[in-house]
Design a protein around this nucleic acid. Structure first.
Lengths: 238, 238
DNA sequence: TTTCGTCATTGACGATCGTCATATTTTGCG
DNA sequence: CGCAAAATATGACGATCGTCAATGACGAAA
């Protein structure tokens, strides 16, 4: 854990900071909250918090990609969701029983803004505006899980994989040339399969099917896809 | 909408009331909140709120069973979740953009405690203790959706159906005699299939398989199951 | 009671998925 | 550069699911 960076706002990409700009009325309390921000950089594969440990605060993803995973009693585990930049994680245990029910691991080199529980719990707990912001985060996560349920009920695995690849490309796409976009895939095949709820062998065949359609090319962790047509894939595939 | 019942606590089963007992420190604000409770009885099939309408408050289910469903642009719809007694619904749109993204329909004759938005929005919005309660509701719903994701990833449809039937039996089981429990199934086959994410034909075959195991007997809406063995079904089925 | 419409079940068949086994590729390290 | 371990891909096969079509059961209204 680094020492707090108290000069200016330590995390301009942080959604908390952004909202303090959008809502000037609440700015004072949020500014004092920002004073307690701690910036932390995570290397690839580094764990932000482990399942079963005490909640130490609320985290906002600034850069990179964080995977939230639950480990079951039988040794298996499930990749619950990915946290992209701008999203807040850790509020579930912060508002709940105080214990992380998931493990948070950086899939790429990442940066998070930490609001330590010790330093500002009273500020978070007793301030209705900030409580509402946290509640809004919860609402967004509920929306996301609802969308996921609808996706699972409506779309095929092939479409879901296409959607996932497009979202990843939006966040991790590097350069764009000759109508193609490229990225380094931040997830392993196992993680991709886990996220879709299929077996790794099935995922491999899903990838092959997408490649046969010509929408995308995946070799190892190198992903290349056409810029525009893939955008319509989830709608066009029957 | 009925007129408010202001004598005593109108809804003793309501979780809001229950928590006001558990946390005496917050009792005053919650008692004044309870003054605004409106009790509303819903007949089977009646709609509590429709998708796309403005949020009119927060609802707590006292009795019965409420189905939350989203209608998609293509005419299809997805049954997102069931709300059992003690659960709070409507807070998503209350805390969010103010518009219901789901339709709430009573599957059985039900009773809900309504906290009208107009009467108590300031109380809900400006009181950190109540905001935290609402946030806690959000956390619980996130937990439930996470469990659902894990179930979908881990269990077979057969096990998921067994789990669902057991949960329904816990809430709607009527009498218990000779080691058997009985209930009137509160959901149609289509709704059951929707909740599991399968087609109605598949659900019918899932039921047939459960019946062949001898765990349960389902004729129309009449469900009879053994009291104890089914409890272990989800663990024993390989 | 009869009729009609809706809901539920059943059958058949093609497509997809899970599982196991085996090959191939990639990755990390010496 | 080369090797070993891990990750990924492929093949085969049984089980399950979705789809379409047809049948059967149930309830509401005449």
């Amino acid at each position: 854990m680094q020492s707090a960076a108290k000069i200016d706002h330590p995390c301009r990409q942080c959604a908390f900071y952004a909202e303090s700009v959008w809502h000037p009325v609440e700015q004072d309390s949020l500014r004092s909250l920002a004073q307690n921000f701690v910036r932390r950089d995570l290397s690839e594969g580094e764990v932000l918090f482990e399942q079963g440990t005490d909640n130490r605060g609320v985290f906002c993803v600034s850069r990179g990609l964080i995977a939230l995973r639950t480990h079951h009693a039988d040794g298996n585990s499930t990749l619950l969701r990915l946290a992209y930049p701008g999203e807040v994680i850790g509020f579930r245990s912060f508002l709940g029983d105080g214990q992380h029910q998931t493990e948070a691991r950086a899939l790429t080199p990442s940066r998070v803004c930490t609001v330590p529980r010790s330093a500002s719990s009273h500020l978070l707990q007793d301030n209705p505006a900030i409580m509402k912001q946290l509640a809004t985060r919860c609402v967004r996560e509920i929306d996301r899980t609802h969308e996921r349920i609808c996706s699972a009920a409506t779309k095929t695995y092939k479409e879901q994989l296409a959607d996932l690849l497009m979202t990843l490309m939006d966040h991790h796409g590097e350069q764009q040339q000759k109508g193609q976009r490229h990225m380094r895939l931040p997830l392993s095949r196992s993680d991709l399969a886990d996220l879709l709820g299929v077996q790794p062998e099935t995922l491999s065949r899903l990838i092959k099917r997408l490649e046969k359609d010509g929408w995308v090319q995946i070799k190892g962790r190198h992903v290349t896809m056409l810029s525009h047509p893939l955008r319509d894939l989830s709608a066009s595939i029957g």
